[in-house]
Amino acid sequence: MLHDMNDGDSVMIRSRGLTKVFGSIRAVDGIDFDIGKGEAFGFLGPNGAGKSTAMRMIAGVSRRSSGDLTILGMDPNRYGPDIRGHLGVVPQQDNLDTDIRVRDNLIVYGRYFGLPLSYLRTKADELLEFAQLEDKAGAKVESLSGGMKRRLTIARALVNEPEILLLDEPTTGLDPQARHILWDRLFRLKESGVTLVITTHYMDEAEQLCDRLMVMDKGRIMAEGTPANLIRRYSSREVVELRFGSDRNEDAAKRLEGTGDRIEVLPDRVLIYTDDGERDLERIVAGGMRPVTTLVRRSSLEDVFLRLTGRSLVE
């Protein structure tokens, strides 16, 4: 029944023209992608880009409006439950079971896969250790911090030893320290060969975790590639950020024309895309301009997104 995936074909998820329509809104509008075995694949885009909708289709729950989708060689419209048996899902919104305790959350969830209690008791302890929640085993879910809840949700998603782990905005709402702990756990999973599919609107998360990225906006794919490759393709090596004060940025940008490869004016600052930021900054200052603050930095995915859509990732 399970289609053979080991016939040299290591594609875990294949999408062609995948579309989801809600009423008159095309939430996902004809996207194509392949995700390979062991890959960490990211959907990067702002809120409302269609990432979560795409994710719910990949998770084998949300029915596509049109297009083709195969997960582990199976069509989710027909084999949803079979596919879901091989997936681990970490939803954007925590849906832990608040009526039962931390360790029981892992056991009860494992039962839904038909796993025997004898297996689940050992597995639950192992997962608690992985999630660094050993001393919270008997705690109520509500007493956990945001980061702990996320780690428990990830641990729960691993109870069936999934081949693919889907993470929808895994670190949204977490403080920096909690994010780093989480990233570390996800790295370990990646090392152990689990295919990761991540949606995020944080460029640092995308850079940290993903081997390959798909930049999405308004339900469509804007670009695809490795983080470094995307930056090379859509941005310059360096960026000079200048702040002249909100009402003077526009005028300053006019005077700066010709500097660098490209100039982008944001409400609070002017960005100059260039190969040598320090050199350009020296010239600007020598030319008599007096920005309030200056910063020279390397190009990031944020710049890629700005270039592709004319908007910032986080608004």
Partner: peptide
């Protein structure tokens, strides 16, 4: 990583079904 796999059949929905 084979332990759950050996407990779950290739068609993992069978028991759940």
């Amino acid at each position: 990583r084979s332990e759950a796999a050996s407990l779950l059949s290739a068609r993992r929905s069978r028991k759940a079904m």
